[in-house]
Computed example of a mutant assay.
Amino acid sequence: MRHSFVVFLLLSALTGTTARAQSTPRKAELAKPLPAAAPKPLIKDELYQTVARLDTEMFAAFNAHDADKLMSYFADNVEFYHDKGGLSNFAQTKEGFARLFAQSPDISRTLVPGTLEVFPVKDYGAMHIATQRFCHIENGRQDCGNSKFVMVWQQQAGTWRITRVVSYDH
Rank of each mutant, 00 (worst) to 15 (best):
E57M: 09
A37W: 15
Y73G: 04
D45R: 13
F74I: 01
E95S: 15
C144I: 03
H136Y: 09
T18F: 04
F80Y: 15
L100V: 12
A36R: 13
P41R: 12
L9W: 06
K84D: 08
T110K: 11
M71K: 10
L54C: 10
P33Y: 02
P120F: 11
A130D: 10
W153E: 00
S23K: 13
Y81I: 00
P25S: 09
D106L: 11
A102C: 00
S88N: 07
L34W: 09
I137Q: 13
G86M: 08
K84S: 10
G158K: 10
E117F: 06
Q92E: 15
Y81D: 12
S88W: 05
T131E: 13
D169S: 13
P41Q: 11
A126H: 05
T15I: 04
K148W: 04
Y73A: 05
G16V: 02
D83Q: 08
D66F: 08
L30F: 04
T159K: 15
P35I: 01
T110A: 14
D66A: 03
I162T: 11
Q92K: 11
T115V: 00
N146C: 07
W160N: 07
S167F: 09
F5C: 02
L100Y: 07
A91E: 15
A75V: 02
V121S: 09
F119V: 00
A28C: 00
G145P: 01
P113G: 00
D106C: 06
L9I: 09
Y124W: 10
D55G: 04
F119Q: 06
K32C: 01
M151Y: 12
Q103C: 00
S147D: 11
G158N: 11
D45H: 13
V166E: 13
V112R: 09
Y168R: 01
D45Y: 11
I43G: 03
A21L: 15
A28S: 14
D68T: 08
A37L: 07
F149P: 03
E138Y: 07
C135Y: 03
T24M: 12
D143Q: 12
K40R: 13
C135H: 02
L54G: 02
A31W: 02
P35S: 03
T50C: 07
L111M: 12
Q156T: 14
A36E: 13
F97G: 00
A36I: 03
